[in-house]
């Protein structure tokens, strides 16, 4: 019995120690984010590479998913809402689903799978091959050189991808509705815009910023937690994916609730 209590106490202590360490990591990252201007000469390449990888190279995938979701909403929504004589509601559903909910969430899932895993794997391998120690030996703080540009690049990329996803989703909706329920382009978009509020756009983009930051910080943290062996890298990457997904779902609920309280 005493042994079990000991193991449980030990695990709880380890959990809280890791939590404290993570909190300190987040604090240092946020402080270093504000100091990026002082280190721009060193971090600019890392930042541009992150934007290229997360923002630009994911564009095709995001656009395809956006088109497919927009098309699916129109096909399912029109068929269902027509039976109630409420086909006009499809625009509101398109905005709620694409702009406010599924857009940021699906973009987050794609970015976790594509860039989050890449970040934690890359940083984990850098730890194993002493590259992080090499940076420290120059006096370069790994958080300011490796974490901050990745967080900033991820946030900027997520912000842009969220807009792309919206455009692709709404276009997808139009393409399908034009094929099955012919409607002029201007009428479709004026119907959409008349139902879209500034608040919808702001909350969608707030989600993009928050999600981008959450994914990048968690992925960097787990990558840098690798200690010695390359076998730790996939294990830490899986932990990064699980933690990112969990926190994204929690933040999505919190931000959605918050958006309805304004």
């Amino acid at each position: 019995m005493g042994k079990i209590t000991g193991v449980v106490t030990n695990n709880i202590t380890l959990y809280f120690r890791e939590l404290l360490y993570f909190a300190a990591f987040v604090k240092v990252t946020i402080i270093e984010l504000f100091l990026i201007g002082h280190r721009k000469q060193v971090v600019i390449m890392v930042l541009l590479r992150q934007i290229l990888f997360t923002g630009y190279e994911a564009l095709k995938l995001i656009a395809m998913v956006g088109l497919a979701i927009g098309a699916a909403i129109i096909i399912q929504g029109m068929a269902l809402l027509d039976t109630f004589g409420q086909s006009g509601l499809v625009y509101k559903i398109l905005i709620v689903v694409i702009t406010k909910e599924l857009g940021p969430l699906l973009t987050a899932f794609i970015i976790i799978a594509r860039s989050g895993t890449a970040i934690s794997t890359e940083l984990g391998n850098m730890v194993v091959s002493n590259e992080i120690e090499a940076l420290v030996s120059f006096g370069i703080n790994p958080i300011s050189y490796l974490v901050v540009p990745r967080v900033l690049g991820m946030v900027l990329s997520f912000f842009a991808l969220s807009i792309y996803f919206n455009i692709a989703g709404l276009l997808g909706g139009y393409v399908v509705s034009a094929a099955f329920y012919p409607i002029p382009f201007t009428e479709f978009f004026s119907n959409l815009l008349s139902r879209m509020t500034i608040k919808d756009i702001i909350f969608a983009q707030v989600k993009a910023v928050v999600f981008g930051m959450v994914i990048a910080i968690i992925s960097c943290y787990h990558g840098l937690q690798v200690q010695f062996a390359s076998t730790e890298v996939p294990w830490r990457t899986i932990q990064a994916v699980v933690a990112s997904l969990s926190w994204i779902i929690i933040f999505n609920i919190l931000l959605t609730v918050l958006s309805y309280s304004f």
Binding site: E122, S129, N130, E131, E133, A134, L135, S137, F138, G139
Partner: peptide, 20 residues
């Protein structure tokens, strides 16, 4: 510390060049 690090270099056993 950064001022001191400027005056020190360390060559690692496995070279530790930044791979990317």
């Amino acid at each position: 510390k950064v001022d001191i690090r400027k005056r020190i270099s360390f060559v690692f056993q496995n070279a530790a060049l930044i791979s990317n």
